[in-house]
Amino acid sequence: MNLFTLDELMVIEASRYITNGDVVMVGTGLPMVASLLALKSHAPDMCYVVETGPVAPDVIPTPTSVADARVMHRSVTNGSLIGALGGILHRGLADVGFIGGAQIDQFANVNSTVIGNYSNPKVRLPGSGGANDIASHAKKILIITRHELRRFPLYCDYITSPGYIDGPEGRKNAGIPVPYPDIHVVTNLSVMSINKTSGKLTLSKLMPGISKETVLSNTSFNPDSGIPLQEVAPASEQELKTLRDEVDPKGIYIKRV
């Protein structure tokens, strides 16, 4: 078996949720790494869209931000923010939206704005950026984050980007254009996916060597629905090689073994 870290497998597993041909709205950080891996491996025809404007670039590893020339390389157009977040995403053309976040709650709502009270914050975070737009309009939402107790509260301190809000009809009741999207949360311990009947995150896969108890003790809500759990498929030689040699060759985002 190939030697890999769970951080590497987290990115690899997240990339597997992107299908060749998908239009993918990508933020920065780990979502960018996972999307780039999909682009350089099994989804060469995915349309990578960046919120600053670029469409379908041949991304040069490893961009530092959505304003990096590396995300404009050989794009079909470099476009505008309204062209990307408006003309593609709000228009309903994004198959996948990929975001991160500081807190993710039981309904897959995401907080990237504030820890504590909004008007009297304990820690002020960067804010929505394009994340709220992405979570409101993409047909499928992918969230990637490291699995720590503080990142998975029962309720977010502040809902920046919508999951299922407060239950199965939460998005529909709020008038969000995509009422029942698939949502997958991929972490270094597990994969949790939205159960559309309850509107809540349900544990579906465990990372190799990780027990259900470890996931539960790092999650403030109970994502266990009693369904049989799969193990995340290990990283293939090809996936690892692409991630290490092509996507993040300097180990900027993902540390090596």
């Binding site: 309009h137 709020a174 008038g175 254009p177």
Partner: peptide, 15 residues
């Protein structure tokens, strides 16, 4: 008009 921000604190938590 826009259809973003619905259902979230970007609309709810404003002074």
């Amino acid at each position: 008009p826009i259809k973003s921000m619905l259902g979230t604190d970007l609309l709810e938590q404003r002074s």
